[in-house]
Amino acid sequence: MTATRAEYCVIACAEAWRDAGEILASPMGLIPSVGARLARLTFAPDLLLTDGEAMIVDPEGTVEGWLPYRQHLTLVTGGRRHVMMGASQIDRYGNQNISCIGDWERPKRQLLGVRGAPVNTLNNPTSYWVPKHSRRVFVEKVDMVCGVGYDHAAGARHHRVPRVVSDLGVFDFATPDHSMRLASLHPGVTVEQVTEATGFTLTLPSEVPSTREPTAQELKLIREVLDPAGARTREVAV
């Protein structure tokens, strides 16, 4: 069985929650959701997951708890959570923008707004998912800092951006100045493809590992249990 690109993305997202312990996984987007549930069913069985609204549910959908927005915001501040958000723009220090493109006073394109990105990034680990890696997303400087990056996080004691997953690879900030580094390439992707699609200089390790292969059990779970209709291929083309 050969894994598809979308399935490598699922694995790369799932890995964000490895060894996370008994915390809430908050995936946003389809592939992070499949990844979080895969982690819950395999190597991170203590994770808490929601139904996307106000209920905490186990993998079968059985309600085990209640988490309306007001309690969710307390859980964020308490730190027992790892969220994976989307990003309309992200820069080399992990600043993220989902608010607007262009000048904030009179935006060229109004997007969602800051939402919970400021509170997330100052209180619990925040990773990002980018389904289409391009220079429009990976920019030198974001137009509006919603999610706080490392160069804006001085003194923020609970700030951490563990990883960025895109359709091309996995990225982290494990460099002396916390600038973005290529951590692994999805099989079939070249370093040149990634640097070409990135609007700033990435740190490249001398040997770039490949995103790991899914196990046979993981592939079976993705294909037969978690996403039998194959919705993941609509988020990342094969």
Binding site: T77, P118, V119, N123, M144, A156
Partner: peptide
């Protein structure tokens, strides 16, 4: 008091 907003452009705008 909240631990949110610091470091972000919420403070700038």
């Amino acid at each position: 008091p909240v631990r949110a907003g610091l470091g972000s452009d919420v403070m700038r705008v």
